[in-house]
Design a protein around this nucleic acid. Structure first.
Length: 173
DNA sequence: AAGAAGATTCGCT
DNA sequence: GCGAATCTTCTTA
């Protein structure tokens, strides 16, 4: 699957290579304690953006994954640049290509994703939308989710095995 | 009203 | 490898 970002200065396209699932009833999910002003987008019908701000510095991008009224989504943790690399580089302080989109905070920064995109429909054309895969995904690995303390043992992180744009220690790739 | 925790990143040792 | 940075949100430790 690819993600397309339409910016003032051009279009950036990214191939999604790493995600984590946050399911209904999952204590680690932001939706676990019910709907609030911050997480309401997680309760939208699948295919809408949920963007939140974390650690005082970073935005993280998620796609809602359940039916309307049920909270759940997928965190996009990493991507492989496909087009518009110069645009991403400019927003990432000229980081090297491998670091442009590796990790949820970097991913959002490279694509200029912030709370103004929270709640938008990703299944239709607009500033940000999901497109068909530019290349089929390869072998999918799974692991524990990164950076959480609750429900830490569940294997809900998915990534393309061997892909250098995946975050985390090399052994996970 | 105050405080702690948080789906992270970067720079320094 | 470790710790600081930095601020919003939810909980009441």
């Amino acid at each position: 699957m690819s993600l397309v970002r339409e910016l003032d200065d051009g279009v950036a396209i990214v191939r999604i290579v790493e995600t984590e699932a946050y399911l209904p009833g999952d204590a680690a999910a932001h939706s676990f304690r019910g709907e609030t002003a911050r997480n309401r987008s997680l309760f939208l019908h699948r295919g809408h953006a949920y963007v939140y701000f974390i650690y005082g510095n970073h935005y993280c991008f998620n796609v809602s994954a359940e039916r309307a009224g049920i909270g759940g989504g997928v965190l996009v943790r990493a991507g492989e640049p496909v087009a518009g690399i110069a645009l991403m580089r400019a927003r990432r302080n000229d980081a090297r290509d491998r670091d442009l989109l590796r990790g949820p905070g970097r991913f959002a920064q490279a694509l200029a994703i912030d709370r103004s995109l929270d709640g938008i429909d990703l299944c239709k054309a607009g500033p940000l939308w999901l497109g068909a895969a530019t290349r089929p995904i390869g072998d999918v690995g799974e692991s524990r989710r990164i950076g959480i303390t609750k429900e830490a043992d569940r294997l809900l992180r998915f990534f393309e095995r061997g892909n250098p744009f995946v975050s985390g220690p090399a052994r996970w790739a």
